[in-house]
Amino acid sequence: MTDYNFAYLDEQTKRMIRRAILKGLAIPGYQVPFASREMPMPYGWGTGGVQVSAAVMTAGDVFKVIDQGADDTTNAVSIRRFFERTAGVETTEATGDATVIQTRHRIPEEPLTDDQILVYQVPIPEPLRFLEPSEVETRKMHALEEYGLMHVKLYEDISAHGAIATSYAYPVEVEGRYVMDPSPIPKFDNPKLSMAAIQLFGAGREQRIYALPPYTRVVSLDFDDYPFEASKAEHACALCGATDSYLDELIVDDAGTRMFMCSDTDYCRSRRAAGHVGAQGTPFKEDAA
């Protein structure tokens, strides 16, 4: 078939990752250490997500990769090609057709179903890391369920900015126990973290795997008088007119003219294919470049 073992990794590595995934699912939100391997791509390009995807993938899977919602960026294209070559799996850009979706920094707009798996690429898995640099200390804080520092951080946001200014990688509490970093997804996506699909998080450089089983209770941290708010730009997508999707902001000329468009390219494309046209959009043509 190819010069590689199925899905690139050797079998002993996959067994080690699979054991970490099972313990992660049994202890939702807890970061399981694993012996991350060097991958044929640099750290920061999704080596954790790639290793988790390789460990869960079967030959019958349909694989999708998104990078900040987009299927067509360098990171997404190269990881998709990597698994086409090393696992021979079918790939897709359609969220509904995929069985395994690897994502960098977004949750697809289309709700996922219980036969799908969402794999996150995680840069810094430790939500307390920027508050406490020592791993020994943060591990103890998790063991003691000592999360006061995180609430102080959110409080300082309010005292400095008048609101909780954290807009991505917004910390969550899982099943009333572990505080978890949902990876740098926009906080707009936080309410989607309780979903029907299995969610697996892989941090390659930091050597951690964690997981959320389906329907796990995930609560964004907040205060009674400053409740959590899933915010997005107050615009409609310029291409498809969607008002319910997370938007990217683009500067389109030297005068600073702005344009907002869906960050989820598959969602935008399928809406335009269904006949929705935004303020600056043109009617959808299948072959349009």
Binding site: E11, K14, V56
Partner: peptide, 11 residues
């Protein structure tokens, strides 16, 4: 191949 399919069942 077989361990991948088996693991999906276990997971």
């Amino acid at each position: 191949q077989q361990s991948a399919v088996a693991f999906r069942g276990i997971m």
